[in-house]
Nucleic acid binder design. Sequence first.
DNA 1: TTGATTTCTTATCCTACATCAAGGCGCTGA
DNA 2: TCAGCGCCTTGATGTAGGATAAGAAATCAA
Lengths: 193, 193
Amino acid sequence: MYEQLRAYFQTRLPGITDTQVEALQAQLQPRTLRRHEVLIRQGEAGRRGAFVVQGCLRSYVVDKKTKEHILQFAPESWWISDQYSMLRGLPAMFSIDALEDSEVLLFGPDFLPLLQTIGPEFQAFFHTLLQNSMASMQRRLISILSATAEERYLEFLQMYPTLVQRLPQRMIAAYLGITPESLSRVRKELARS
Amino acid sequence: MYEQLRAYFQTRLPGITDTQVEALQAQLQPRTLRRHEVLIRQGEAGRRGAFVVQGCLRSYVVDKKTKEHILQFAPESWWISDQYSMLRGLPAMFSIDALEDSEVLLFGPDFLPLLQTIGPEFQAFFHTLLQNSMASMQRRLISILSATAEERYLEFLQMYPTLVQRLPQRMIAAYLGITPESLSRVRKELARS
DNA sequence: TTGATTTCTTATCCTACATCAAGGCGCTGA
DNA sequence: TCAGCGCCTTGATGTAGGATAAGAAATCAA
């Protein structure tokens, strides 16, 4: 269960010690999620996030017209949480649930502050992670503003080649910001050529 | 020139000492920018960011169809930079320029790492800042995916009431992700009611 | 002041994608 | 085994906002 996490940090922070990994593990609680099981519900104060060991989660919001918009997919070795709300004890801005039966390691609001005591490199690591999310979020914003549905689908294929097989198409549509019908037409068009 | 910065930190980090503020100032270089002057050019390695003392900057990308998309406005007391590229020494993902004659305090790639030595509360402060940006980016993404041009314009008015007077409408349109013509129509419609 | 840019408005037409509706196909479960 | 329910597809029609064009208004420069 924890081997995945150990490997994850050993490749990303080569200097890491066993004691540090153990200190980390102590903060993370293993948990199994079944497909469709909800970890965080939008609007409620679910103060936790997850590291995905096996399976795939997603974060999403549902708007006034009851349409779902997916912010992030989190397959193996990804982190997923609503950091902003979690650290402030606010109602979650989005929901998080499992798209497949999954195994995750859960952490609470004190996780990030605690990293400091384990080692400053962890603090820095999560800061870098946040910067990466920010950068990819910016790219996505630009993509939605400037690219067509087809272009965005192709970008998605490039970015997450493995997810296309694993996820239902309606999920991909909800990520791209188009209807399932439109995605179906885009795929039909691409198949023709 | 630096009073603004001092006041900024004194309200946000009340426990701060004079020595700390001075250490910070030592990292920041005053500079005047004229309207339209470019600080960072997309694709080039401009390793710096700014704290805005007076005036207003913006970060933006231009896409293949040569259309501009504005990521952020930075009026007084805002920070603006391409952290991701700056810290990695990569070509900038977007441009930053001045929308008004402005006074800024510039910082380099070593600024954030150096905060650590000045005090951990600064490190944490900038981490929080990044979280805020991330959260507002997420809100914007959802807004673009689910709201109409009119709704987004109204959100913008709520969020940045002072900027509407200061900025040309084409800039607001480029932020909202619509054409200046569409924004003009939206405003006309709103004025009717 | 006045000519030259730039910015904003308005009108017409167009297009990418949404919406609505219906049919097929594959799971799942009694 | 087959009923029933998601999921995907396809077609017909609708619409928000884009593209283009041209004039009005504001700003700038000399």
